[in-house]
Design a protein around this nucleic acid. Structure first.
Lengths: 223, 223
DNA sequence: CTAGCTATGGAACAGCGATCCATAGAAGGA
DNA sequence: TCCTTCTATGGATCGCTGTTCCATAGCTAG
């Protein structure tokens, strides 16, 4: 009897950690966080699960590596002014999350991810450059990081609530309409700002929050 | 032939949405977010899956309802000073998440959860009371909300990274040690604050961030 | 007494992450 | 050259998940 020959030949296009991460980013961008499965990844390379797990230790490992890859851009030269440096730094994170919303959810998931550490370090250095007293540096840098990660996470949630690839303005229209329909007695504030939501700029709003924190840091230093 | 009698009698302790949510909170607190499964919930009431799904539409529904229940406390009388009111409001959210970390992850997950809306409304009202000009109210309230949700989410991540019920200080010890072992050339700031991490107060640090934002709001108003 | 609605328990299904294993090719020593 | 060892690969399998479906028991109107 002919033993069933198993096809386990070496592939010409060898798998590698890097190629798998790149494919994972592709799938995450196209189909969202739930669209990435180890099986989808295996199908993308026309292989089995074992091949994937040979290179990656777990799905969490894959998503974490993809997040690191997406956020690890070339460290642009920091502007001389510490405030501007923080703004530039924050915007770089914001723009990365805007392009890859799934990374926003991941970023705050695991506390000590190397990427988060690097961001925290960069913020801390600029906080020191701002002249914040040593005793307040930890709190100040943490506040900036928490705000940045908070916005990143909310953007991720908003992007994932809609189908991948849905028109963003359509989503905002819907939320704005929902806000307008709220009970006026209990939601007077939200109703008052509902029109602004329709055509507001996420990026500008994010920056406004950073400016608020920077203003608070300056005010605390002089008082 | 005796038909296999199915035990579908009415239970004396009738199931209800409220009882299921209460049990879900119990399980979430005890076993963490992954510990809550629909089967665990069914086992808690010694029943089947159908009974649960008769009252709840999905697991997402269950977790969302549990989050709402945990965060919907009695609305304490707001202090006369808007700044103090925001501080009290923020601390109420913080303390709730501190008691139920899984709620922190959920809170920012779905954007338009009723609880989040209520928090946003309360913040907005106090922002108006602070005298922030109408054009800046949306951005200001959003910044405060993003910061609060950001901290809530990070607390949730930190709490879930450890086993449920693990000593919190032990986790901080570990992270502090990890920070100390970082490369001094690339992580000078983080190394410098590592000792402070060991015995820092999350709650106080959270409040420091709120104060920073409030100081920024004051500074922006007077300038 | 009967029809319909409410509620229950559990089987079944599709899909997931992860593990395990047989095997094919490459590499290196004798 | 042969043989052993290590690196990769493809896929079967396991245990678990959320969800759907269905038979059935009790309650409530008519």
């Amino acid at each position: 009897m002919a033993a069933k020959t198993k096809n386990t030949e070496r592939r010409e296009d060898a798998l590698s950690r890097e190629r798998i991460i790149a494919a994972a980013i592709e799938i995450l961008d196209a189909r969202g966080e739930n669209g990435l499965t180890v099986r989808a990844l295996a199908a993308h390379f026309t292989t089995g699960l074992g091949a994937i797990y040979w290179h990656m230790s777990s799905k969490a490992d894959i998503v974490a590596a993809a997040t690191d890859a997406v956020l690890a851009g070339p460290a642009a030269a920091a502007p001389p002014d510490p405030g501007d440096a923080i703004r530039a730094l924050a915007l770089r994170v914001f723009d990365s999350i805007d392009d890859h919303p799934w990374a926003g959810a991941q970023l705050s998931r695991t506390a000590s991810q190397p990427t988060t550490l690097k961001i925290f370090e960069s913020i801390g250095l600029q906080v020191q450059a701002l002249g914040v007293p040593a005793a307040a540096q930890f709190n100040t840098a943490s506040a900036l990081l928490s705000y940045i990660l908070g916005v990143a996470n909310q953007n991720a949630a908003l992007a994932q609530s809609a189908e991948p690839g849905t028109n963003r303005t359509a989503v905002l229209e819907g939320v704005s309409a929902m806000w307008t329909d709220l009970d006026p007695t209990h939601f007077s504030f939200i109703r008052s700002i509902a029109p602004q939501l329709r055509d507001h700029d996420d990026r500008a709003q994010f920056l406004a929050g950073i400016d608020l924190l920077l203003a608070g840091i300056q005010a605390s230093a002089t008082s």
